[in-house]
Design a protein around this nucleic acid. Structure first.
Length: 587
RNA sequence: GCGGGUGUAGCUCAGUGGUAGAGCACUUCCUUGCCAAGGAAGAUGUCGCGCGUUCGAAUCGCGUCACCCGCUCCA
């Protein structure tokens, strides 16, 4: 995905503020830190909890069609075999010996030509090298071109004006991936990079006991699909969502918490009927067209309507926590980017200071995952749809055959993956007409740590302000949406040497703290306390002043000053109405 | 994993071989009448870590760890 502008300095400021105020620390810092792992401090822990809660509420509690799951991090290793992670997570890598450029060893273009094997080189000032090196040159090119590359190689190893030795005769080689296509230089032996963290279950720690820390939370949902269906009276279309840790042994963790080795995912697997089932039940299938109404799911929606629906739902969610359209972007994967089993995938991107990068991917994955588990476990992962069975029974043989022929034509037109044979299509429809199908899935998969970073980056604002002495200074304000702010309200007695103010302030604090995260502060001048809370992102400050005590007349007695972080506006609010006033603005 | 950069107080940074510093922040006290006021006192460092060179290392060398940038990777 794209990178537009880089803003390293604002990122550095954000990292610094995160540490200073207790949002995010480096893991294991006293031992020098450990790459790709980050801890959340007091404010960060609250922020993350709030984000987690808003997601959970939006995805399951406020919906009738999604249920939750909380599965283990370590699961049966077969799960990762079935999902493809054991194979595809192992990327063989090879480096160019000359330029150090790195290649996916299995992605290097196949080449043929003459290979010249050099055994070393001698040079001026008795510099020399015994390191062997080989160069591939296209057929028809002279040996000198190979020699030129070899000289560069030995020069880079400290040999002055080198004369490579050996390599007099070229060797004919065909279809090799062992040389850099750009310059012909030899690549290192491919080394595997498995991105899954490995561990051992049980005391013996043999190869038989190998297990993996999950690299995504999604597979647990698929693995428990049958149990959820059997125990919770859900009917397709419905979803299962989960929040939890996932682990990837990234080659290069970077951009603060953006790419970490341990991270938290928030995933939904939303199971839908195959389009053929929709067609049988509803008579026709609605497909996406620009401007279609996505507000309420309809029984005749095809998979792409559901996909678009979830994109719009997710965008609505981001808007609800303060990430508006101005900071979001989208990337629709083209046919070439898509995995063979995926039908569509859109990334919701956020404009981070280091570039526009993915917050969430929403993929239409067909029935790939459940089918894989059905195949590997030998346990059926079908859903039985009563209404479908009844509707299918009413179809004529001709209608049935028309559906089958349509699918056969669709399979024949496939350009990716292995198309189903006619026999397989007929077997699939045989099950479908009896009411059985493996549901298709729409998968909105979001990164919680990325979201936390996004809202922090979005909230980070600097303002120049003159202090009482007229000296301008830069102040940092974290304009976090009140719904996710770690501290909702700061409670301050105007002065701490007046026991009446302090006593009243403690009363107000005790009143509020049962309902929201509050912070009591009586140190330093009031302006400083406001400023501290601005950096923590606290949306409201409540100050107990002399009016509260009734010194300015009875009508102001038992009222407090409520100060808004973003506008500096002040309101007089009765203590008896304060809780309601705040709750209304935090909802 | 490769190349480049950085690492000194909580934060930002100065300090190029000779007793570890500044600003801000922090703690306590005084003061205080709404946006980082003022005064006084105080605490804070294995100069990222290890090894070496040296009479002596934050400073020089080697190694290592972490972070940043660029490659590479991101199923």
């Amino acid at each position: 995905m794209s990178t537009d502008k880089k803003d390293t300095s604002s990122m550095e400021k954000l990292v610094s503020l995160c540490k200073r105020r207790g949002f995010i620390y480096q893991s294991s810092e006293i031992y020098g830190g450990i790459g790709g792992f980050w801890d959340y401090g007091p404010l960060g822990a609250e922020l993350k909890r709030n984000l987690r809660d808003t997601w959970w509420r939006a995805m399951t509690r406020e919906r009738e069609d999604v249920v939750g799951l909380d599965a283990t991090i370590i699961m049966h290793p077969q799960i990762w075999k079935a999902s493809g992670h054991v194979d595809t997570f192992t990327d063989p890598m090879a480096d160019c010996l000359l330029t150090k450029k790195r290649f996916r060893a299995d992605h290097v273009d196949l080449q043929s030509g003459m290979v010249y094997h050099f055994t070393g080189a001698t040079g001026e000032e008795s510099t020399k090298s015994d390191v062997p090196f080989a160069v591939l040159t296209p057929f028809g090119k002279p040996r000198e071109s190979a020699l030129k590359v070899a000289k560069l190689f030995y020069e880079s190893r400290g040999v002055k004006t080198p004369e490579p030795t050996g390599g007099e005769q070229g060797e004919k080689v065909e279809n090799t991936r062992a040389y850099n296509p750009e310059n012909g230089a030899q690549l290192t032996e491919p080394r595997p990079f498995n991105l899954m963290f490995k561990t051992y279950v049980g005391p013996t720690a043999t190869e038989k006991d190998v297990a993996y820390l999950r690299p995504e939370t999604a597979q647990a949902i698929f693995a428990q699909f049958r149990n959820v269906v059997d125990s919770s009276r859900v009917k397709v279309p419905f979803g299962i969502c989960q929040i939890g840790k996932a682990f990837r042994n990234e080659v290069t963790p970077k951009n603060f918490t953006f790419r970490s080795r341990e991270f938290e995912q928030m995933e939904l697997e939303f199971f839908i009927k195959p389009d053929e089932a929709v067609e049988i039940l509803a008579g026709s299938v609605v497909t996406w067209s620009e401007g279609a109404d996505l507000s309420t799911p309809q029984p005749n929606w095809g998979w792409d309507m559901w996909h678009r629906y979830w994109v719009s739902q997710r965008v609505e969610y981001y808007n609800s926590i303060g990430l508006g359209t101005d900071v979001l972007d989208y990337y629709w994967q083209g046919p070439d980017d898509l995995a063979h089993y995926a039908r569509a995938c859109v990334d919701i991107l956020f404009k981070f200071p280091f570039g526009t990068e993915e917050l969430e991917g929403i993929a239409a994955r067909g029935d790939f995952d459940l089918s894989q588990h059905q195949k590997h476990s030998g346990k059926p992962q079908e859903f039985f749809d009563d209404e479908l069975k009844v509707a299918a029974a009413k179809l004529t043989d001709g209608q049935k055959e028309a559906l089958i022929q349509k699918r056969i034509a669709f399979e024949a037109a496939k350009t990716k993956g292995t198309p189903l044979t006619e026999a397989e299509v007929r077997a699939w429809f045989d099950r479908l007409f009896k009411g059985f199908y493996v549901p298709h899935v729409i998968e909105p998969s979001a990164g919680l740590d990325r979201l936390a970073l996004a809202v922090l980056a979005q909230a980070f604002t600097e303002e120049e302000k003159a202090d009482v002495n007229g000296k301008t200074e830069v102040r940092t304000i974290m304009r976090l949406h009140p719904r996710i702010a770690p501290i909702k309200v700061g409670v301050f007695p105007l002065l701490k040497n007046k026991p009446e103010l302090v006593g009243k302030a403690r009363e107000v604090y005790d009143l509020l703290k049962k309902h929201m995260n509050c912070f009591y502060d009586e140190t330093a001048a009031i302006g400083r306390r406001y400023a501290r809370q601005d950096e923590a992102g606290t949306p409201f400050g409540v100050t107990i002043d002399f009016e509260t005590l009734g010194e300015k007349g009875d009508e102001l007695k038992d009222t407090v000053t409520v100060r808004e972080r973003d506008s500096n506006a002040q309101h007089r609010v009765k203590i008896s109405e304060l809780l309601g006033w705040l709750l209304q603005r935090l909802a």
